[in-house]
Simulated assay, not measured.
Amino acid sequence: MNFPLVTTDWLADNLTRKDLVLLDASMVTVIGREPIVYDRPVFIPGARKFDLEGDFCDLSSPMVHAFPTEEQFTREARKLGINADSTVIIYDNQGVYSSPRAWWMFQAMGHENTFVVDGGLPKWLAEKRETVSSLVQEQAESGNIRGVFHSGMVCDSSCLLKELEAVRVAAVDARSSERFFGTAPEPREGVRSGHIPGSRNLPFSQVLDEHTFKSAEQLKAVFARTLPVDSERTVFSCGSGITACIILMAAVIAGYKNNVLYDGSWADWGSNPSLPVTTSE
């Protein structure tokens, strides 16, 4: 797997490349941090909307923010003009929030030539780079990308239950410590407080320096404190599968392999009374 990040300098130098497709994966709903609110629409030039809450979400699934089907991903990605040989660059308007989710979606669908802009729109604006007031709305030609879903990169609750029985599998939760230990209520109605027994807490803010990721060396130290020394496979979760991808990407930056996203995350696990919950260490 490629190193997942590009810098704003790199993007500025490559913005007009014909093979480059720039996607804005910003979300309307931001949970787990104070959202950056903009008083007017502002985008990096040439960006196309990557709709994580609609077009690229399986709305027929009972899970919140469910991964799209292979057919859905292919159809919607082609509408954005993405080809099999496109270099896909993703950013969001919170710095690093929802763009890693879109990145992992491309990875799981077999398009590895996909990267996230470290720092996203806030860093781009801080550097006083050019912006526009609207996204690119339509593509003259449909793309030819074809998603091929790699099911081992995403799991559900039944898969996770089996995973946790394996000695060298670790589960890491990106929610705040208050939500993890059940001292703060869950934002979604009907979802229990607490966490998956045996999982470890790594709030996603701990892998970031404000709007950007910490260095690879810093992240190696973070995960050395978080993961068991003998873990060979890591399952990442959060509230609904969005911010889990932040710490999953941080693990990739730190050099960890065999990473899996629990797509339904706590919204799925915590709402299922048949699944065990704990608030203790």
Rank of each mutant, 00 (worst) to 15 (best):
E163T: 00
L59F: 04
D118A: 05
T114W: 04
F181L: 13
L121Q: 03
W103L: 14
R129F: 12
S158T: 06
S177G: 08
P187W: 11
M63Q: 01
R129M: 12
K128S: 15
A140R: 08
V117Q: 01
S134W: 04
E141M: 05
W104V: 00
C155N: 06
L59N: 04
H65Y: 09
I145K: 02
C155K: 05
H111T: 08
Q94C: 09
L121W: 09
I90R: 03
E130D: 12
A171L: 06
S177F: 15
G81A: 05
S157G: 07
W124K: 09
T69G: 13
T87M: 10
C57D: 06
P68V: 15
F67M: 12
S142P: 07
Q107E: 12
A102P: 12
K162S: 14
R101K: 14
L121D: 07
Q72S: 14
T74C: 08
L59E: 10
L164E: 00
V132C: 14
V169E: 00
L59Y: 00
Q107H: 03
S98W: 13
S151C: 07
S61L: 05
E130W: 04
G147Q: 10
G198A: 04
V172H: 02
G95K: 04
S86R: 06
F115V: 06
V136E: 15
V64M: 10
N144Y: 09
S157Q: 13
G81H: 01
Q107K: 11
S98E: 14
P187A: 13
E141W: 03
S193P: 02
T131H: 00
L125E: 09
T74F: 07
L121R: 02
N144A: 11
V148C: 14
V96C: 03
R78K: 14
A77F: 09
A170K: 00
Q94S: 08
R129T: 06
Q107Y: 08
V96A: 01
V148R: 08
I196T: 01
D85P: 02
N144W: 13
Y91H: 05
R192N: 06
S157V: 05
G54T: 10
V148P: 04
R188Q: 13
G147L: 10
N93P: 01
V167P: 05
H195K: 02
G182L: 08
G54Y: 11
P197Q: 09
G152V: 00
G120F: 08
H111A: 14
W103M: 03
Q137G: 08
Y91R: 01
G190T: 10
R146T: 14
D58N: 13
N93F: 02
